[in-house]
Nucleic acid binder design. Structure first.
Lengths: 229, 229
DNA sequence: CTTCAATTTGTACATATGTACAAATGATAT
DNA sequence: ATATCATTTGTACATATGTACAAATTGAAG
């Protein structure tokens, strides 16, 4: 069956918001993209802010559910290195690739979040605050178990960097293409997700004070880990 | 001597753009913040887009110069680990901390770049493209020398993640504070710069196919490094 | 077919924005 | 002091935007 106009409006809004942010996209832009009338947006959603709220409502819950599901699987892995890798993948992949129809994830929604978080619009701020990503705490805890002795400061900042990497990969993929002289495709999301997982794996692993279990020890002259020892 | 109104306007514009983006800030907002009249902006800069162009002109050159200077110093370090650390610091620090009056760097300008890059405004796009960060290539080259055998794909993506981490640390510092339960101050830029350098150090180091010079070898079961072997 | 509620369309309105420009003001040199 | 130029102010205008709402259309139940 044909999707309802309501759904088409929501979808168009995500696409446009992800591309140009919240302020720059007018309700008329959204209506035009959805092949509908301006008034229909007011009718279905009441206001622009509420339209955004519905977008979040629709996506965040299933996406977090998907993350929790993958995180649960990951936690059952006994080898700490493999486990860490799986945990990171559980966080990154749902944000990049929408597996099923209703998992709420995918690059477009994540890119929208990235753009809106940068924009700092007050409407958006309130909505983002409500839809706070409760999975983050669970992830940090899970990661912490893989890197014994890691200071909280290092863990939290690296989770921040992970999110920043994820966002920027979606916001500015052209930079990768350009910087590599066209050799690497910045829009290859599978590759991007893979690289983020590997890079953050290394950055988290370096926090561990214990030597790697599998090997003798990787004592690079790691500069002291800061105040929070 | 008192700064000219022209300078005050530029400074106010950076502050406001860094806070709310390009679209959301009106010329009247800028004028009010600078204690000037709307017309004075048109008089001094002609248009909003040109005001932004002047901001870039004023900042990018001295900031890149500072980066090149620090990079030059870093490259003279013989020990590859220390060198890598210094190279990363040379890239990150000018973006976070403005050392001298005219070095063009600092967190505010960098945050503005972050916000504008996410916003995708067409005025801004053109200007950003012109002020392309020519130092990035030099940095990747310098980094590559520290991690022999590293595939280009890994290097480029990690440089992307570095920039994303940097940007997001400035855009959303509250998340760090909140996520740590108030223990860690997301607005502590010295700490942020430090953490970024250390995290990206680890992520770049992990690309090296040769074992660490200082130690036996850090053969974590690193999953195969992708296509570009 | 008729009725009635749900939806869609069209339009109006108050407000905000970038830009243009004439008048007022200020400073500087002769 | 006066003339000349640079700056600042005030205002006007065309356009765009979020929202409200009445009229038109649609679709299903009786």
């Amino acid at each position: 069956m044909r999707p309802s106009i309501r759904d088409t409006l929501l979808k168009s809004a995500v696409t446009l918001f992800a591309l140009s942010g919240y302020n720059a996209v007018s309700l008329r832009d959204i209506a035009k993209a959805a092949g509908a009338n301006v008034g229909s947006i007011t009718y279905h959603f009441g206001s622009k802010a509420n339209l955004l709220r519905e977008i979040y409502d629709r996506h965040t819950k299933p996406m977090n559910a998907r993350r929790r599901e993958l995180l649960g699987e990951a936690r059952r892995i006994s080898n700490p290195e493999e486990r860490l890798m799986a945990i990171l993948r559980a966080y990154v992949v749902p944000a990049f690739i929408s597996s099923s129809e209703g998992d709420g994830g995918g690059a477009e929604f994540t890119r929208m979040r990235a753009v809106l978080s940068a924009e700092g619009n007050s409407d958006a701020r309130a909505i983002i605050a409500d839809a706070f990503d409760e999975t983050s705490h669970a992830f940090i805890d899970a990661v912490a178990e893989c890197v014994p002795g890691a200071p909280l400061e290092g863990l939290v900042w690296r989770s921040q960097f992970l999110l920043g990497s994820l966002y920027y990969a979606l916001i500015n993929p052209e930079r990768v293409t350009r910087l590599s002289g066209g050799v690497i495709d910045g829009n290859d999301r599978e590759a991007a997700a893979d690289q983020i997982v590997k890079a953050s794996y290394a950055s988290f692993r370096s926090l561990s004070v214990e030597p790697a279990k599998v090997d003798a020890g990787s004592h690079i002259p790691e500069p002291a880990q800061g105040k929070t020892a």
